[in-house]
Simulated scan of single mutants.
Amino acid sequence: MGGQFSPKDPMRCPHYARFAAHLERPQFDGIYWTFFFSVIFILFVSSWIYQSTMRYREKPENCEHTFRRKLKISLAWCTALFFLAAILLIFEVFALLALQFCDGEDLMSLYWSTWTMLQLGSEIAILGINLAMWHQLFNVRQPLWALALGTPVLVVAGIGHIIHLALRMFYKKAKKSRRASKDVRGEMTEVSASSSSAPTIKPEREHVDQASTPATGESMCFAIDVGDDERVRQWPSFVRMSDGKAIVRLTAIHA
């Protein structure tokens, strides 16, 4: 039976109610209340799953591997229940739109407020259960406020907490990769600089007059800049190291 003060709207009825526009009042009334209590029942089941999983961890004989396996199964079930409740909520919305535009219900404000508080609130509470189990599964520190079965505001704050953790993790990984690439570039620069610098030989004649020609058998000493090459110590003419340079003695031989 339609409302006495809210007339039917034949233009908006098929536009908003879609499939429910072709149903009668008892039919979309039954759809709404059946799905209404179904969503409440799904919330109860999700809370039971979460509570049984968390209670296992408090048992003395609990095993971390078994707990994580139970946690994965519970998270999968609660996620499936979350999507099932979302589908039921969509059908409820069409039923409410049919009540409003196709039947002209006078008390639609009570319907919408109840749906928002209990149905949409239950959906958000189930999402909070999933977020709490996700924190447990990945060993992420939970926020200080209640997340599982929390109010919509607390659950939305929990989503913001996850976004904050994800951004901080991304920043740390980017900073670490940038630092690693900088170290690699520095090592490549050092290697190229050391490979491009060839050993230079600076002859330093000791106690010999530069204007005279060395006689046969006369020895001269040279200082050779060999860098970090240790193979110079194996040379037969090697004398010693001085100021980072290798001192070698060469003997003049005239043909």
Rank of each mutant, 00 (worst) to 15 (best):
M1L: 13
Q4A: 10
Q4V: 09
F5V: 13
S6K: 08
K8D: 06
D9C: 08
C13R: 05
C13V: 00
C13A: 09
P14D: 03
H15Y: 10
Y16M: 14
A17H: 01
A17I: 02
A17G: 06
A21W: 08
E24T: 08
R25I: 01
R25H: 04
R25F: 05
R25S: 00
P26V: 00
P26T: 10
P26D: 14
I31F: 07
Y32N: 08
S38N: 15
S38V: 00
I40K: 09
L43Q: 12
V45I: 12
V45D: 14
S46A: 15
W48T: 10
I49A: 05
Y50N: 09
Q51R: 15
S52V: 06
T53C: 04
T53Y: 00
H65F: 11
T66M: 07
R69S: 11
L71F: 02
L71E: 04
S74D: 06
S74H: 00
C78T: 13
T79I: 05
T79V: 00
L81N: 13
F82T: 03
F82D: 05
F83W: 09
A86G: 05
I87R: 04
L89M: 14
I90H: 01
I90T: 04
E92W: 08
V93Y: 01
A95Y: 01
A98M: 04
L99G: 09
D103V: 01
L107P: 02
S113V: 14
T114N: 11
W115N: 09
T116Q: 08
M117T: 15
L118E: 13
L118W: 07
Q119D: 06
G121R: 01
G121T: 03
S122A: 15
E123S: 12
A125E: 10
I126F: 06
L127R: 02
G128L: 02
L131A: 03
A132E: 07
A132R: 11
W134P: 05
Q136C: 04
F138N: 09
Q142L: 12
P143W: 12
W145K: 02
W145V: 06
W145Y: 10
L147V: 08
L147S: 00
G150E: 11
G158P: 02
I159Y: 03
H161A: 09
I162K: 03
R168S: 00
F170L: 07
F170V: 05
K175L: 11
K175H: 00
K175F: 00
K175M: 11
R178M: 13
K182S: 15
V184W: 10
V184M: 10
R185T: 13
G186Y: 14
G186A: 15
E187H: 03
M188N: 12
S194K: 08
S195I: 13
S197C: 11
A198H: 06
I201R: 13
K202V: 13
E204L: 13
E204K: 07
V208F: 07
V208L: 12
Q210S: 10
S212L: 15
G217A: 09
E218L: 10
I224M: 10
V226L: 02
D229A: 15
V232L: 10
V232G: 13
R233Y: 09
W235K: 14
S237H: 09
V239F: 15
R240L: 03
D243N: 09
D243E: 14
K245F: 01
I247R: 11
R249G: 03
L250M: 15
T251W: 15
H254W: 08
H254A: 08
H254L: 07
H254I: 08
